[in-house]
């Protein structure tokens, strides 16, 4: 199966030799959307069936829980939480992300199947928020993974989160939310940024 050129194979340099067989070494590839009515229809389905990855990365994760209750009821927009990254399409980064968490965020994001969307919740994901000068908290999430919608605030209320999701749905239906393709095209840039701060990179370069 060595049809691909050597250039497209990731080295996985930081994995021990015995583990390399377990992981894929292919780079992510951008999948062009088909144009026209068909893509609009698929985008409509994607927008109305957003499955959130149930990974609370920071304090903002507490704002996700009320969305399930009868007061906010995100199910009426086709949104539901999902416990595994394989099946989810929307990653809500809840607030500050420390370097330790960012490692898990990158890993989870790469395991999601495209098209996938990221929603930065809270000021901490925009510019660091109140942790802007912290030694261990990232300032801008979009340097590490592509972000579709930011919601400012500390913390934003669940209504703000719902408004952000509605904005994301409009973006998806307009065909503008192409974060996964963006990630694949600028893979080297994202990966360099990630490796700049994650010093013990003991995982494969791309997790599928």
């Amino acid at each position: 199966m060595k049809t691909k050129s050597v250039k497209t194979v990731l080295p996985n340099l930081d994995l021990p030799e015995s583990d390399k067989g377990y992981f894929c070494d292919a780079r992510p590839e951008a999948v062009e959307p088909v144009k026209g009515i068909w893509e609009n229809f698929l985008n409509w389905a994607r927008a109305n069936s957003l499955w959130i990855l149930g990974f609370g990365t920071g304090c903002g994760a507490i704002e996700l829980r009320p969305l399930m209750t009868s007061r906010y009821d995100m199910y009426r927009f086709g949104i539901q939480p999902r416990p595994t990254p394989r099946q989810s399409g929307l990653f809500v980064i809840g607030g500050y992300a420390s370097v330790k968490t960012l490692k898990r965020i990158v890993r989870s994001y790469e395991q999601m199947q495209g098209p996938k969307f990221v929603l930065g919740l809270g000021s901490c994901t925009v510019n660091g928020g109140m942790y802007w000068d912290s030694y261990n908290t990232i300032n801008r999430l979009d340097q590490y993974i592509p972000v579709d919608v930011y919601i400012a605030g500390c913390m934003p209320r669940p209504e703000a989160l719902l408004a952000g999701i509605k904005t994301l749905q409009k973006q998806i239906m307009a065909g503008e939310a192409e974060g996964a393709n963006d990630y694949a095209r600028n893979f080297d840039w994202y990966k360099a940024n990630q490796k700049k701060i994650i010093k013990d990179w003991n995982m494969p370069d791309y997790n599928w």
Binding site: V31, P33, L42, A45, R46, N48, S49, G78, Q87, G89, Q113, G114, P115, A180
Partner: peptide
Amino acid sequence: IDVIKNNARRT
């Protein structure tokens, strides 16, 4: 919608 969405995944 869920079935269409899942079948329309690009990867």
